[in-house]
Every structure is written in C-alpha cells, then in structure tokens.
Design a protein around this nucleic acid. Structure first.
Lengths: 194, 194
DNA sequence: CAAATATAAGTAAACGTTTATTTACTTACA
DNA sequence: TGTAAGTAAATAAACGTTTACTTATATTTG
C-alpha cells in the first residue's frame, strides 16, 4: 500500500490558511487550493469528506486547538487577576505573532455560520478547553477580586479587545506596538478589579 | 420614462441583509437574492455595477453609515468619560436591538477583505465619521482623565467588547442581559479612568 | 532475498450544477 | 411616443465533486 505523503497534507492546510488570509474565506475554492498546494483536487477528498468538513477541521484542529493550547501555557487557576490576565494576553499576542496565517480564519469564526456552529458545538462537546479560566474567573468572583459574571461576558471584556488589537497591529504595526498592547492590558485589569 | 420602483430597491437590500444574517455572506448569490426579493437578476444590476459594488454599498451605506449616525446620537465632545462611554455603548446596543439584520454584515466587515478595505478607505476619505469621538478622546487624554492613546487602541478597548456582548446577547439573550451589559460598561469606564 | 501482488494514495480530466452577468425583449409612465 | 425600468432566459466561467486511471510501497510469495 502506498503510504500517504504527509507533506502534501500539510501543504493543503498551509495554502488554505494563506489563501484565506490573503483573499478571504469567500475566495477559497477547492480547485484553487489544490493548484496552490500542488495536488489534484481528489487528494483533498481522500482526507476530507467535502469542503465543509475540510473547513471545519482546518478551523477546529489547526487553528482553535492550537491557539487554545498556546493561550493556557503557563496559566494556573491560582494566579492573581493581574498575573492571569497578563499571561492570557501575552500568550495570545505571541501565538498570533508566530501564526499570523491562522488569524484570519480565527476571525471568520465569529461571522461565518459554519465555523461559528463548529466553535459552539466544540465548546459544549469538549467540555470546554477553557475550563481552567472558567474556574479561575469563578474563584476570583467568590473572593471579591472581580465582579461575579458569566463567562461570555468575561470573554467579551477580555478577549474581544485583545483580538482587535492584534488585527490592528497586523494592519498598522507602528501604531499598535507591543508597549501599547501592554498598556491596554493594564487598562483592562484595572477595570476588572473591584 | 418609467420611474424606478423604490420598494424593489428596498426589498433587494432587506433580503440581502436577511440572507447574510441567516445563511452567511458566503451563501448570498445574486440569483438567490433576486428570487428572494421578487425581482429579475438584471434589476439588481441597474443600480449596482457588480456584486462587489453591491456588497460594498450595502455595507457602507446601509450598515456603517446608519450605525455611525446612531452611535453619535446625543453624544457631545464635552461629555465626561462616564457619560460619553455610556452614551456610545447604549446607542450601539439599542441600534442593533432594532437592526439585528445589520449586525451580521457589520461583523463580516472585520473578516472579509472586500468589506474591510471598504471600511478603511471610507474612514480615510470621509475624514472619519467618528471625528467627534476622536477629539473627545484626545481632550480626555490632555486633561489627564484617561491615558493618551491612539484611536485604534481606544476603539479596540471600547467597541470590541461591546460588539462581542451584542453577538452573545443574540445567541444567549438570557445570559447577556441589559443589566449585565451596563455592568460591563462600568467595568470598561473604570479601566479607562486614570 | 528478490519478484509479484494487493491496495490505498495520487493524478488528469471530466461531471453536472451554480455562479455572476448579459442579451433580447417588454412594460410603464413623463 | 421615447426611454429607462424591468423581465425571462441564456451565457460562459467557475464551482464542488467524481470517474477512470496510474503510481508507489508494504506485504506476500516463490
């Protein structure tokens, strides 16, 4: 039996992220992708049932999982508010500095119904990768360090500006410097603190 | 000369927003739109050069302009930080509560390269609709009420969590209540204040 | 230990469908 | 009656996916 060429599989994923990053998800076609990756269209269908299956797996396995793993690096539920937020923010920042191609697809996770559904289903089924953060937020609430609030609200306050800053940094690196990024992080922490 | 039927034009725009809201931008086709609006495909091309032209004008004229007008309702550059942020936040909240169909396309403005480009060009060409806010932020910075920061950073801190909360509200109205929304607004204000 | 074989990986070209857009024609009113 | 608004149907190109075939190698056989 002919063994599968892992380089080709990787090339398909990489080129897909590149096309989405440069031309947008709406301009990614299977034929264009196959050409860019240097494979026949059929090769993509060996591993993936159809285009939706491919996009969902690219989004979940390649972008979400990878990011979620990175964001919790060094994070502990016993951290102070200050340290915890700084940890989550800088992990996110450095992750996307090194995985810029993943960022565009990450952002489509908000708008595209296909990816948004995948994101929500995953959050339920996987028992939520962010559980450590969830517990941490609950503990900080009980201790009176921050206000008690549901996770979606915490996520909106904490991660929405973070992702926006990263997007702005990619478009105007001179405006959104790492220094400014840190200042914004301080601003957030100050607001959360009771 | 036969006069143009304004109801048809309105129907095209409304149905487009509805399809984008329910099925996503990637599932909006000109033929599907024409059918939904009860017109011939050709009718859309009377007013719009092509699909891109239609989407950009829908985004800019129907969603962005309309939102930008609403968000500044009652806003004044002489407001305190507290009053100003509350004004911007509640204007945004109520606008999207009454224009839910516009929200999905607004979010695509972040990810879709076509719309993102339109957004940025507009911000430059139109001399920025948000100029009052821009001036207000600068003044607050000079007065030492908030830290001096470039507009993109202020926008990320102020509007990104706001839009995220609204999206969450649409998906889980019981979790993100108007009350929680106000609490989050207070959190933001506290953070910004020096 | 090499040659033969089985089989999944992979390709080029094609499939039918859908796409954006246009053509050729009709309609309604200033 | 002139003219732009509007329609139904057609266009070519692009789409996702499949068909019919070839290739490479792990395993089996002589």
């Amino acid at each position: 039996m002919r063994p599968k060429n892992l380089e080709k599989e990787a090339s398909i994923r990489e080129k897909a992220l590149a096309i989405i990053s440069e031309e947008g998800l709406e301009n990614l076609s299977m034929q264009k992708l196959a050409k860019a990756a240097g494979v026949s269209p059929r090769t993509i269908y060996i591993k993936y049932k159809d285009k939706d299956d491919f996009l969902i797996k690219l989004f979940v396995d390649e972008v979400l999982s990878s990011y979620e793993k990175a964001v919790l690096h060094g994070f502990s539920g016993s951290m102070s508010l200050d340290l915890g937020i700084k940890c989550l923010w800088s992990n996110t920042w450095y992750y996307f500095m090194e995985h810029r191609e993943a960022f565009a697809l990450m952002q489509y996770g908000r708008s595209s119904p296909l990816l948004n559904r995948a994101f929500r289903e995953r959050n339920i089924e996987e028992g939520m990768f962010f559980r450590p953060v969830h517990k941490w937020v609950a503990t900080l609430g009980e201790k009176g360090v921050i206000r008690d609030m549901p996770m979606p609200a915490f996520r909106a306050l904490t991660f929405a500006p973070l992702l926006d800053l990263i997007q702005e940094h990619f478009e105007h690196p001179a405006v959104i410097t790492e220094d400014l990024f840190r200042t914004c992080c301080q601003t957030l922490i100050k607001g959360l603190q009771l």
